[in-house]
């Protein structure tokens, strides 16, 4: 089976800055994939290279088996991209914009699909409004609709939920899940990690232009799993016996312990009693993708 996205040894630099270093990864057909990473990690750069908006220094990329540079027309037909920036053409209304977009992809009219997508995205009341007059969230919805006009087998969304209200976010994900169940491959970037955790089967994490983790969401959670115990004590002097449990010191100074079992809570408390320290506050929770993310980002 051909990969939906095939990324081989991509390098990209701006001046002396390496935006992407030797990134390789495949996204399988039908996958729901999250591309994560802190600001400036290179997510948008990678997407731009896949979309042909940006040319890599070396390496190759293909969409549904079509090379992005040598077979650019076919590769573009297979791909729908929602850009991160809120771009729009101030000359046109929503309906005109979507009709033009369809035409760019060789589809005349397209009224039924325009109807379906826009009502799914809650745009039906805005169809004849000028793009200029729409709110930011509404412009974002139009960008999503535009990317779907040619029913591309692969859809890439670069932070589609930035600046979008809760209702649309839910609606958007329902829409995407539905497309995914119909066989569309979906790749998204987001800074809301709980979204990625719920939606995506597999996750790739970029860090300083390198692929720092690539695995199924479940495996990642398992690998970094366990229980998080967040603790503040009176003295805040760590007994040496607790060193092995300490994961990090949070920004506000609290200790974050990583436990493999709830019974280990007792071990921690016992050690604290031994040094005559007292607990002020305590939170216990299961590890989530955010913990995985921070562990990966902190690793060298």
């Amino acid at each position: 089976m051909t990969a939906a996205l095939e990324i081989k040894n991509i390098n990209k630099h701006y001046g002396s800055f390496n935006a992407l270093s030797d990134v390789s990864l495949n996204v399988r057909e039908g996958e729901f994939f999250a591309l994560l990473g802190p600001n400036g990690a290179g997510k948008t750069t990678l997407i731009s290279i896949l979309a042909g908006l940006c040319v890599a220094d070396s390496g190759s990329t293909a969409v549904m088996g079509k090379d992005v540079s040598s077979d650019y027309l076919e590769a573009r037909k297979k791909l729908g991209v929602v850009p991160q920036e809120l771009v729009y053409d101030p000359f046109f209304t929503v309906r005109e914009m979507l009709t033009i977009q369809s035409g760019y992809f060789g589809i005349r009219g397209n009224t039924d699909w325009i109807e379906e997508v826009t009502s799914g995205l809650g745009l039906q009341d805005k169809m004849d409004e000028n793009m200029r007059t729409l709110s930011g969230g509404m412009k974002r919805r139009v960008l999503v609709a535009q990317a779907l006009m040619h029913k591309p087998p692969v859809i890439i969304l670069d932070e589609p939920t930035a600046g979008v209200d809760v209702e649309l976010r839910r609606g958007l994900w329902k829409f995407m899940k539905n497309l995914n169940s119909q066989g569309h491959t979906i790749v998204l970037t987001t800074h809301y990690l709980e979204e990625a955790e719920v939606l995506c089967e597999r996750v790739g994490m970029l860090k300083n232009g390198r692929l720092a983790a690539l695995d199924t969401t479940q495996n990642l959670l398992k690998r970094f799993s366990g229980i998080r115990l967040v603790l503040r004590t009176k003295k805040m002097v760590l007994p040496s016996a607790l060193n092995e449990y300490l994961l990090e010191v949070a920004a506000d100074g609290e200790w974050v312990f990583r436990l493999s079992d709830y019974s280990e809570v007792e071990v921690i408390l016992r050690e604290l009693r031994r040094v005559e320290d007292e607990v002020i506050s305590m939170v216990l929770r299961e590890a989530d993708l955010e913990d995985v993310f921070f562990s990966v980002i902190k690793e060298d």
């Binding site: 979309a51 042909g52 908006l53 991209v81 850009p83 771009v87 729009y88 101030p90 760019y104 535009q146």
Partner: peptide, 13 residues
């Protein structure tokens, strides 16, 4: 305005 991306993404030779 950045909307040139719509054209750059389109399969037009």
């Amino acid at each position: 305005t950045g909307n040139i991306v719509f054209l750059l993404l389109a399969p037009i030779s």
